[in-house]
Design a protein around this nucleic acid. Sequence first.
DNA 1: TTTTCCTAGAATTTCGAAATTTTGCAACTT
DNA 2: AAGTTGCAAAATTTCGAAATTCTAGGAAAA
Lengths: 218, 218
Amino acid sequence: MSYETDVFETLRYRLMTNGFGHGEKVRAEHLRQEFGCSASTIREVLFRLSTLGLVEFREQRGFRVPEKSRKMLHDLTHMRVLLEAEGTAMSIRQGGVAWEARLTAAHHQLSHLEMRLQTASDTDPFVDLWFNAERQFHETLISACGSDVLRATHHQIYCRFRQQLMVEDRQFDFISNNIRHHQQILDAAMSGDEALTRQKIHDHLARHLLTGDALELA
Amino acid sequence: MSYETDVFETLRYRLMTNGFGHGEKVRAEHLRQEFGCSASTIREVLFRLSTLGLVEFREQRGFRVPEKSRKMLHDLTHMRVLLEAEGTAMSIRQGGVAWEARLTAAHHQLSHLEMRLQTASDTDPFVDLWFNAERQFHETLISACGSDVLRATHHQIYCRFRQQLMVEDRQFDFISNNIRHHQQILDAAMSGDEALTRQKIHDHLARHLLTGDALELA
DNA sequence: TTTTCCTAGAATTTCGAAATTTTGCAACTT
DNA sequence: AAGTTGCAAAATTTCGAAATTCTAGGAAAA
């Protein structure tokens, strides 16, 4: 693994998990010092991240973290629903027992964490664990879809979705709803009911969607 | 527009339109000479293209054009159908008269070219024109969907789809079917029938999809 | 007071070359 | 003949600095 790949992964993770504020400028010069490498290396990495939409590039004005916007979160959510619903339906058709086992395992892990979160007084130590378990569950849903293109596209969208949420969603006041949602998705998937599974995936993410007037104005 | 952006666009276009062979190595050093710039500039551009999937990057082994594969074309086509069907349905709901006008115009232009292609003895002068008109038509379909994320994602997938086709699809022996398909998509869209439009978009692209055993083995 | 202009400092873009790694090819061994 | 080893050429990766462009803030003008 080259140093550049290292920097890329480090920055990608940081951009997805609160390491920068929305709209903040990402100064190549500062990062160069922090990582102790040359300007070109940082620049390459930032360009790659901009192709993924995790930072925005403007000619002669460097890179900055995208602003948070209700509309952007809506669009990303809509795309997640589209990709996850389709990918999961394909997994149901083609995944077989191996996929069902993986999905059950991923749900068990997530469910365990969510239970503990409900009773924990300090949620901080769980934040990273929960984010990873949630991602793992949703990736497992589509893991047997058979299309690398779909999986890679979903991954891109998911990163930007996470980035849009960042801070505010860390209070976990939504957790009891989430537990129910995840359970319903699992049940629907295991029963082999494609239409129901699609519906449950939509319901789970619906709180990030705009409706009616709010969407018109966005 | 910076020089780098120039190089990026030039190479992206070349990768989509036959400028390199499948699996061919893309030598940064050669491109550096051709474009008369430094190695870093080329490297940055190739990294950005790799994030889009138009070239593959392997540690210490440079960049190469992805191999052509029936399975990859299938996956990309499947994604196109998913995105275009959804985007067009959204356009039907939200696009209004302005969208219908744009779509009619795009279809007219494409249709005109396709007619001439049918009777032309030498199709070469039309190749670029037709590719652009076809892209324009499909982009117009989703142009009123209201989601930048969907449009950008579709654009990425479309570029890779084009790249997979490259050479062989330039004989235009499929053109009379295509004329019918495009007309049917237009008619369905203008009639406001979402389900029918989705179906026609699927049918149009179906010749690139694998079925049954071929898919299992891929 | 508000606006415009200017300048010093900071950030960016691009470059060319040094350091490292791979690759092609010939000589050598089995 | 087939496979291995070693060397030279070519390609890649990383660097540090020069050239260019932006930005903030004070001075001058309206």
